[in-house]
Amino acid sequence: MVEYGAGSSTFFFSSYVDHYISIEHSPDYCRELERMAASQPHRSIKIYYMERNSSGFSIKHCFEQDSSLKSNVTSHIDIYCIPRNAYSFQAYRLWATGKRSTYTMYRDYVDFLSIYFREKKFDFIFLDGRARPQVAYAVLKQLNGLNAKVFIHDWNQRKEYHIIVKEFYNIIDQQMESNQVGGGGLVVLEKKSEDIGKDNINDIQWKYEKEPNWWI
């Protein structure tokens, strides 16, 4: 299973699978996750601090949970820290005025799965981090067939996310009500067809909507 946006969900959902991959954009938060790893003695936890180069991504350095803390390991968690790209003026304006995450701001983070794990397919992907609509498009190539599921958190009130069900996904299930701050709610998606997602994110042929000004 893959997750975009590490946090308490990382330690919760990883208990249901043997191998859990989490992708996080904040180095500061990844260092906090290093501290949190000490409270997870039954998990094998590695945090990879990545950098991008001309050939893709490489590991800059790696945190590995103290082996003396491990006992009866039940799951393996690999967290990849992919720093945010530099702001452009336009990206900063969109963020400052509407809290919109653009592809330009999070390009490496958005693209990471399709580059570093390009040969792998996944059955379940959970999106709870930055640039969720753009990530939802980028991971289409990595889904293991039409029955693979994408879960997106905070769906109910964040209407800008909904463009992806017009263009790329079908809703399979949805939690309609939530008391969680920020809108809450969870949606379960499957991609519309095997042909969806083949274009680069900059070259999408939008059928039902214009490209949002915050997309790129």
Rank of each mutant, 00 (worst) to 15 (best):
D203C: 08
I77M: 01
F12N: 11
N156K: 10
Y137D: 13
P83F: 00
G7P: 04
Y109V: 11
S68M: 08
E209N: 12
C81M: 06
D111L: 01
K159D: 05
Q65K: 15
N53Q: 05
G98V: 03
Y208D: 13
Q142R: 09
R43Y: 02
L143D: 11
R35P: 05
V165L: 00
H25T: 10
H61T: 13
E194Q: 09
N156P: 05
L189T: 06
F11S: 02
D123S: 07
W155Y: 07
A136N: 02
F57N: 15
F124G: 00
A86E: 15
T104S: 06
S15E: 13
S14K: 06
Y137I: 04
R43D: 07
W214V: 09
T97F: 01
T102D: 14
D128I: 10
R35Q: 06
F124Q: 12
P133M: 01
I21T: 11
V135A: 02
D128Y: 08
E160C: 08
T104F: 01
L143H: 09
I201L: 00
L69Y: 07
E177P: 03
L127W: 07
K159I: 07
Q157L: 04
F122A: 10
V165Q: 12
R118E: 15
K192R: 14
K149E: 09
S8P: 05
N53M: 02
Y208Q: 15
L94Y: 09
V135Q: 13
S88Q: 13
Y116K: 13
M1K: 05
P133Q: 11
N202L: 02
S26C: 12
N170H: 08
K191Y: 08
Q134C: 03
I59Q: 14
V181P: 14
N179W: 11
I125Y: 02
Y4N: 10
M1C: 03
C62L: 06
D111T: 12
V181F: 04
W155D: 08
Y169P: 02
S67D: 15
A96M: 13
V187H: 05
R130Y: 07
A91F: 04
R158V: 09
R43N: 12
F112L: 03
K192N: 02
V73A: 02
P41Y: 03
L33I: 14
D173Y: 03
A6I: 04
L189W: 05
D154I: 04
V17Q: 07
N72F: 00
N144P: 09
W215K: 13
M105D: 12
K120Q: 13
L127K: 04
I23T: 15
I196G: 02
S67R: 09
Q205K: 12
L140H: 05
D199L: 02
E34H: 10
E190M: 01
W214S: 03
T10H: 00
G184R: 08
S68Q: 14
G183N: 04
E167C: 00
K198H: 14
L189K: 03
W155H: 08
Q40R: 14
